[in-house]
Design a binder for these strands. Structure first.
Lengths: 333, 333
DNA sequence: TTACCCCTGGCGGATTTCCGCAGGCCAGAA
DNA sequence: TTCTGGCCTGCGGAAATCCGCCAGGGGTAA
């Protein structure tokens, strides 16, 4: 486990690392540390792949329950009809194939923590039972008649704002307030691009037999510039794939094309913003300039054929004609 | 004088070099070589700084008159009231201060060539006299009574299309036809960017005591990308300035900012075209995308103040509000 | 408390834009 | 020679856009 000083902020507990130097994540680590003595329910909000599971582990292992079980449940991955029994167990003979009693995941987490990922996908019919379990701190197995005490700390994760689901009647408001005692928003990777170099280095080191290889400057810039729609999971997978094929220093050419090449749309937006902000052009001037150039390009490609040019541009011939007249672009201007 | 093989085309005559590897210039050199035995009047057309004077020298020194005088006249640089006497001389007592007779530049060019630069600036009142001299092959000094024979080859240069001036009555049609026997259009440097590396190397070598220094790749790319509105003259001056201050290899940081940094407008146009061509977006989608982003940027800069944002964008508040509604951009989306 | 300035929303009129329709022309195929 | 398909132009109606006007609210200074 590498420990880095000065500008970095690495908390390593129980071989779990939250690697960051960005302010958004530092703030979250601070909040987690400040409630480590607490038993409060925590709701982690963030996009797929941002590392909610890792954060949940960190929370558990820095809490007073760190020596006790930590049960992770991906709710979205469980078949809906098995969900109840998986979570709460079932009594003997509860249904045809229930030849024996079964402990649920909540029982297994007794005295420890349970992490319910994708709580936004939780069936609303089970929400009332979950709420009862949380409030009474005991559960009734499916088909059972005996209340079984459970002492668990609840950590949940959602990829959307549960308030929206509450407003749409898809999530119980009372359950929401119960699990949202401490909300933590995990930012997407594109909002903490400053962490990308650390994470890249971390995963390259993780997957390389000889320690993290060096990265060319332009390759690093491309990695930082990329928006990482798949967040840390995508970054991790990308680094794993790179270490399989790259030799020595990581070059720009070692990166997959969607990272290596700047997205044309992003490039355009950046250029337009820069032109508008620096080029002293008004909104209309920028839009007009864009339209003119797109039209010119299409006419060139269509060798002056206006009908074809209109089709290229995805507009009506009449519309193109009107624009040609408006901008005084009669021929292949 | 360096001679380069293979891909290059360097004609060196009498310590004059036309350095090029681009097709447009090669074509011109071929035309010049093919008329070297001719005495035809040549009209060079091209922007300021493209090297018309150098081309004129080359023409003279590859012609049969190469051993005879070559007189260069920048017509725009001469005071209009002295123009006639400079070109055609004057007799003794032609005017108060004319204490002696004076040969004009045409006489000095006898048996050789005369190069009249900026012929587009030539006063229309002198155009008839010039025409008479060219047709009769003799001249009358200002205030003189004796016809003096002159045998000169005429090379003229213009930075505009003289036909336009003829159409507007600013240039005599008969004179135009007389001097336009062989028109040669010298392309601007931006239309033969392939020559930039050669020219950069040439001038760096010219101005460096220790031979041409090496250039970093990104610096060379910036030099090629630059549009060189001042053409070769600007390139020459830039290289001279660089060799004064740069040490060793020429880096991107050694270049002046207008070359080092890509012009925002050009960048935008390039990016927009690429986005449209590669990004599989329709005209409307591109325009919409641009508008949304410009609006978002303005709102961000105005911290949500729509009146301010409208002013930033240079549009009416009502217009901005209509667009916000159209694009469903309610808050700082 | 009052006055002033600025922002925002609602709304409607004028102008611009989009585009469909009809007709003519041209080139190529039957 | 006729027919067909495509392109282009003129033109007018519907829809969209631009923006001015009015009213209300909030903040600040006198």
């Amino acid at each position: 486990m590498r420990e880095i000083r000065c500008a970095l902020h690495v908390q390593s507990v129980h071989s779990i690392s939250l690697i960051t130097q960005s302010e958004p994540m530092r703030s979250i680590v601070s909040q987690i540390d400040s409630i480590s003595a607490s038993d409060s329910s925590i709701l982690l909000i963030g996009e797929t792949g941002v590392g909610k599971e890792l954060v949940a582990e960190y929370i558990h292992h820095t809490s007073v329950r760190s020596g006790n079980p930590f049960i992770k449940v991906g709710l979205a991955a469980l078949p809906p009809d098995l969900l109840e029994t998986e979570l709460f167990g079932h009594a003997k003979g509860a249904y045809t194939s229930a030849v024996g009693e079964k402990k649920g995941l909540f029982e297994l987490a007794h005295t420890g923590s349970i992490f319910l990922d994708d709580i936004d996908d939780f069936p609303i019919l089970l929400q009332s039972k979950l709420l009862r379990v949380l409030e009474s701190r005991e559960l009734m197995r499916v088909g059972g008649t005996v209340a079984i005490p459970v002492d668990v700390r609840l950590i949940t994760a959602s990829k959307v704002d549960l308030k929206d689901l509450v407003n749409r009647g898809l999530f119980r408001a009372d359950l929401f307030y119960r699990i949202n005692v401490v909300p933590l928003v995990i930012p997407p990777l594109r909002e903490r691009a400053g962490d990308v170099p650390l994470l890249v280095n971390h995963f390259l080191g993780r997957f390389s037999a000889n320690g993290a290889p060096e990265i060319a400057d332009d390759a690093l810039r491309a990695l930082v510039r990329y928006s990482w729609p798949g967040n840390i999971r995508e970054l991790r997978n990308t680094m794993q794939r790179i270490t399989l094929f790259a030799r020595g220093k990581i070059a720009l050419s070692d990166l997959p094309p969607e990272i290596r090449e700047e997205n044309p749309l992003e490039l355009m937006i950046k250029a337009c913003n820069r032109c508008f902000a620096e080029g002293k052009m008004s909104f209309d001037e920028v839009v007009t300039c864009l339209e003119k150039n797109l039209i010119r390009g299409a006419l060139k490609e269509a060798t002056g054929n206006r009908s074809h040019a209109a089709r290229i541009l995805g507009m009506n011939l009449s519309t193109l004609r009107d624009k040609l007249k408006k901008y005084n672009l009669p021929d292949e201007a």
